[in-house]
Write a protein that binds this DNA or RNA. Structure first.
Length: 968
RNA sequence: GCCGGGGUACCCGAGCCUGGUCAAGGGGGUGGGCUUAAGACCCACUGGCGUAGGCCAUCCUGGGUUCGAAUCCCAGCCCCGGCACCA
């Protein structure tokens, strides 16, 4: 794909820019309240301004815009606003990397994102980055033909004159209502950057989250060995404590006691606990061979050496449960095998160490660790397969294990229950604690290794609040959600959601109103901003100054509390303006539809619901959400690192806007992931060009005055398409809708012109409807066609076609089907015989067969299929002389007739059968030109019928007999 | 692990809820038409067999329900996505 010009948007389709300009000049997408006109407020999530918009954005946006255009044509006053998300830490990260001269980031900006070389130095300012991309992307959005009311545009963060006012109001009100609380939580943390390290900020360790371990304190002398474990219930099976003899340990002052952990663990704990001091460093060798006392059981255990103990994992101290932990079992075996290694250890004691079985698991012996180690043939603690062995035992024991009789008050409990109970007891008696650690190595983008930090004084949105959840769930059950599968997903997310840390220390954003050392986190500042669109034009136009947007003003506009006269006096905003703002908010709200990628279901979209439910009256809660898939390119996930990221601009430059829009829409609907393929885009381009060519051809060809069944066929097919497309759009099935509007209509058109060389006015009517049906998907091409067809104004504002059921003509439709079927049959005969036809004879059935059809249509065809005897008897009453042929005939007819679509009325089928001969006769010249030889149409029992091999007898109603005369 | 979505022909994909209209539609390929030629466009074919419109096979695998199953039920195999402080 060619590199796009960075300065302007260029499309190979010249009329696109023309129409974009005309729309802009006519301001047709600027939406203001119109009394008594139904409104439709649709929006898409604003995009983060850290790069050029790409096809992934374009997919969601195009769905949104097509729906907006559809609703506008249906007569709604449609508001489709736009804005930009600047909140977040990523842009700041880019700036930092640039400041450090990171060559990768320079390459990315210059080569992937096409930032002009001279501007790159200015990217050290995060605000500049956002400003730059906003300007670039606005051009792209405009070029895409999105029908946006730009008067309402804004961006986020306190760099913006009024957005932060809105966020302050929102958070003060949320806090008053008790939806914000203070607490602490563990995060993956980079000690160098002094900030949380999210998945996107990591070089290594994507997906790794803080894991909660239990520290178990073993008393030794005046301090405790703090062993870390995921399985505190195994304390009953402890035989010894492991230390790594080659590792440095640290003695810590900790909660009025002293504990021993690895030196590395001490560094970690400092980020997690208050008042920790390192008293001194210790060599593990000093402790090897000594004894310590286990908590709860009070048993004396030896301290033994083990090199599998990793000082980087949890506390660097491990207690040994050889019966149930493969690592421990193998380490013990090794020690016992090679006593020389264990200098300073009482050999007798070592030999006497035996696994203690404390958990029974179905399918295993009393020592599951031993079973698994034997099965896998592991003999060294360096063996990597110990990981798998551990996983197996862990999982089996957790799900199916039961504590044995030797576990005190926990005996008989399932492992999963005992685990929490033992943990709680350890902590409450001061003989244990919680420590967080990472299950794998995480390296920050800055190159430093991360650890777990407990962030204190963190602010949370209390999404775990059961009452709040309940209200949200009730609303989810009532609102529109497309596709339907997404509804259950939303319900699950609400169930699963817990409190959300809504503040950050770094990056761009809006300060927390009551504590400016925090900023509101990026997902948390973007939940109810659609409300801001309803009044942002007042500020953008200067009617209301940003500083006039006080809490009282916002309370009045959004909640309806306060006296506008008083507020007007206090703020200087004219009272009528205040009232207009309030009215405008109430006019547009609630949001009728929000369209987004499905990745936002478990976060943004759910938060969006929570916050609306918390802040607004029920009648202002969102009415509908549409979730869609995420794009792939030629079957591969799109990403900058893969180098297959396609900016919208590049696609437009190659295929033009409408082809890009339609290719996206045609790629998928519902939550399926669309796949962008160059081949498809080229094909769509061809189709759109062909459409305009068809318009030109129709306009330049003379029209015939007299219309016939074929014209009724065309209109019938057309109105059915109108119905299908309208219904598809109403449930956001944009793929079906676009496909039918483009290819479905085209296929009907092809048959029509194939059948009729001279066009009639119906062709014009068909085109008129076709253009309207295409307008939401390919608006530029539609405008171009619309003006070619001699219309004034814009098809964008034209009326969406109505469904006229009275114009459905089943007779005409099936009549054409009969002709098509006849052609298929004749061709099949030709194909089999592989000879050239010289004449085709078609035989329609004789009258008595039609009578039988008529009798059968008085029965339920399904019944006749199952048991034809009644229908046969009934038919024999009328034609007793056909006793021999009747059973077969009835079966054949019912089989064939029931292959017609169910919705065709029986009356129509009968009428068709009666007129069958005429249908073929009328189409004789068409049939002859298709097959390339003369046709004769006979009736079965016609005297003069030419029927050398008796094919006329095969004639059934709606299925003629055929004899193809061929060259020998 | 938990939750969600899937497996359809050479490729992409519809159909499944509500069983019979059915294996849509598009791409690619093959043949033909149009054309000085190319492209565009139009037509046919594109699982197998067949010298008469037919027969057989097929919708991840294996069972079942039914007159009838891509569709409903059961079991299994495989793939993809989300899982939180990240936009």
């Amino acid at each position: 794909m060619s590199k796009p010009n960075n300065r302007s948007i260029e499309s190979p389709i010249t009329y696109e820019a023309k129409w974009a300009k005309l729309w802009r000049e006519a301001k047709i997408f600027e939406a203001d309240p119109v009394k008594d006109k139904p409104k439709f407020f649709i929006c898409v999530p604003y995009s983060y301004q850290n790069g050029p918009l790409h096809l992934g954005h374009a997919f969601t946006f195009t769905r949104g815009d097509s729906y907006a255009r559809f609703k506008r044509m249906q007569g709604f006053n449609v508001l489709f606003p736009w804005s930009w998300h600047w909140t977040g830490e990523a842009v700041a990260g880019t700036s930092e990397r640039l400041k450090r001269g990171d060559p990768a980031i320079i390459r990315l900006l210059r080569d992937i994102d096409n930032v002009p070389e001279d501007l790159i130095p200015r990217f050290t300012d995060p605000a500049f980055i956002c400003k730059y991309y906003t300007a670039e992307n606005r051009k792209v959005v405009d070029a895409m033909g999105f029908s946006v009311d730009w008067r309402r545009e804004f961006y986020t963060t306190d760099l913006h004159p009024y957005y932060s006012k809105f966020i302050h109001w929102q958070y003060l009100r949320l806090r008053e209502k008790g939806f914000v609380s203070k607490g602490e939580h563990p995060v993956v943390w980079c000690p160098v950057c002094q900030s949380a390290t999210g998945d996107h900020d990591r070089l290594v360790g994507e997906g790794i989250v803080p894991e909660e371990y239990t520290l178990v304190f073993f008393k030794y002398d005046e301090f405790y060995l703090a062993a870390g474990t995921l399985r505190p219930e195994t304390i009953f099976g402890a035989t010894n404590v492991w230390l790594n003899p080659d590792v440095e340990y640290a003695l810590l002052e900790y909660d009025n006691k002293r504990i021993l952990v690895s030196r590395r663990a001490a560094e970690k704990l400092i980020e997690q606990k208050h008042n920790i001091n390192v008293v001194k460093l210790l060599n593990a060798k000093e402790l090897i061979g000594k004894k310590c006392k286990a908590p709860i059981t009070g048993v004396e255990l030896p301290i033994l050496p083990a090199n599998f103990v990793d000082p980087n994992v949890v506390s660097g101290v491990v207690y040994s449960v050889p019966a149930h932990a493969p690592y421990d079992y193998v380490a013990l075996l090794e020690l016992q095998r090679d006593l020389s290694k264990s200098t300073g250890i009482d050999a007798k004691l070592l030999k006497e160490l035996k696994p203690i079985s404390i958990i029974s698991v179905p399918g295993y012996s009393e020592f599951p660790a031993l079973d698994v180690v034997k099965k896998m043939g592991i003999s060294s603690q360096e063996d990597a397969r110990l990981e798998d062995a551990t996983k197996e035992v862990y999982s089996k024991e957790f799900h199916e294990g039961v504590m044995k009789d030797n576990c005190g008050e926990y005996s008989g409990l399932p492992v999963r229950v005992a685990r929490d109970a033992v943990k709680a007891r350890l902590i409450s008696t001061g003989l244990g604690d919680i420590m967080y650690d990472l299950s794998g190595k995480v390296v920050c983008r800055c190159g430093n290794e991360c650890l777990v930090k407990i962030v204190k004084d963190q602010w949370f949105l209390t999404y775990s609040d059961p009452k709040w959840k309940e209200k949200v769930k009730t609303h989810i059950m009532k609102m529109g959600i497309f596709p339907e599968e997404a509804r259950q997903w939303f319900l699950n997310v609400v169930d699963w959601l817990h409190d959300w840390a809504c503040t950050r220390k770094t990056g761009l954003g809006t300060s927390l109103p009551w504590d400016s050392s925090w900023i509101v986190e990026t997902l948390s500042d973007s939940t109810i901003y659609p409300a801001l669109y309803t009044i942002s034009k007042y500020m953008n136009e200067g009617t209301v100054k940003p500083e006039q947007l006080t809490l009282e003003v916002l309370d009045y506009v959004f909640i309806g509390i306060g006296n506008p006269r008083v507020i007007s006096k206090e703020t200087g905003i004219p009272e009528t303006t205040l009232k207009n703002m309030r009215d405008e908010f109430l006019y547009w709200y609630p949001v009728d539809c929000r369209i987004s990628a499905k990745e936002l279901v478990p976060n943004h979209l759910t938060f969006y619901l929570f916050q609306h439910v918390a802040l607004f009256d029920e009648n202002l809660w969102p009415r509908c959400i549409g979730a869609n898939g995420m794009i792939t390119v030629e079957g591969e996930k799109m990403s900058k690192s893969k180098g297959n990221m396609i900016p919208i601009k590049a696609a437009l430059a190659k295929y033009g806007v409408d082809a890009t829009r339609c290719t996206l829409l045609l790629a998928a609907e519902d939550m399926d992931d669309p796949d962008w393929r160059d081949k498809n885009a080229q094909e769509t381009r061809r189709m759109l060009d062909l459409f305009l060519k068809i318009v030109d051809e129709v306009l330049s060809s003379g029209l015939e005055a007299s219309e016939n069944r074929l014209d009724r066929w065309l209109i019938s097919k057309m109105v059915k398409k109108v119905k299908n497309i309208t219904e598809a759009m109403e449930s956001l099935k944009t793929r079906t809708a676009c496909h039918e509007a483009l290819y479905g209509m085209y296929n009907d058109w092809k048959w029509y012109v194939r059948r009729r060389k001279k066009l009639t006015r119906s062709a014009l009517r068909f085109l008129d409807t076709w253009v309207r049906l295409l307008a939401p998907f390919a608006p530029f091409t539609a405008e171009e066609a619309w003006s070619k067809l001699g219309n004034n104004g814009f098809v964008s504002l034209a009326k969406w076609p109505d469904y006229h059921p009275e114009e459905v003509d089943e007779f005409a439709e099936v009549a054409e089907d009969l002709l098509a079927k006849l052609l298929v049959d004749v061709r099949e005969i030709m194909g089999v015989t592989e000879r050239k036809p010289i004449k085709v004879h078609v035989y329609t059935p004789s009258a008595w067969k039609l009578n039988v059809l008529s009798i059968m249509l008085s029965f339920d065809l399904k019944e006749v299929m199952r048991d034809p005897s009644t229908a046969i008897k009934e038919s024999l009453k009328m034609f007793p002389e056909k006793r021999k042929d009747m059973p077969i005939l009835v079966r054949k007819i019912v089989e064939y007739i029931s292959s017609f679509p169910m919705e065709i009325p029986k009356k129509v089928l009968l009428e068709l059968a009666l007129q069958e001969k005429k249908i073929y006769e009328d189409a004789k010249s068409f049939l002859e030109s298709e097959i390339g030889c003369p046709f004769n149409i006979w009736m079965e029992d016609e005297q003069k019928a030419y029927d050398p091999i008796g094919k006329s007898k095969q004639a059934l109603p709606l299925r003629p007999g055929i004899f193809v005369e061929m060259l020998p």
